[in-house]
């Protein structure tokens, strides 16, 4: 049961993180292709966005391993 719970936690968080990261990266690449002079600003926004989106899958991995360890 613990393994199932871990798999569901990581899987759902990875789906959410994947969708979020995909949207951020696609919009950034689109923006840089249109206006290459804004690359510095877009890099900053992408970095912060990807960083914040990835918090959720990371917490999910931690919780999954703690559940599996019990």
């Amino acid at each position: 049961m613990g393994i199932l719970a871990a798999a569901i936690a990581v899987g759902l968080a990875a789906v959410g993180g994947g969708i979020g990261n995909g949207i951020i990266v696609s919009r950034t690449v689109e923006g840089i292709a249109r206006q290459p002079e804004l690359k510095g600003q877009l890099q900053t926004v992408m970095f912060i966005g990807v960083g914040l989106v990835e918090v959720m899958p990371i917490i999910a991995v931690v919780i999954a391993f703690m559940v599996m360890g019990q």
């Binding site: 990266v25 840089i32 292709a33 290459p36 690359k39 877009l42 890099q43 992408m46 970095f47 990807v50």
Partner: peptide
């Protein structure tokens, strides 16, 4: 990775 992706996009 952010630097790599954005430089490649440019």
């Amino acid at each position: 990775k952010t630097k790599d992706v954005t430089e490649a996009a440019g």
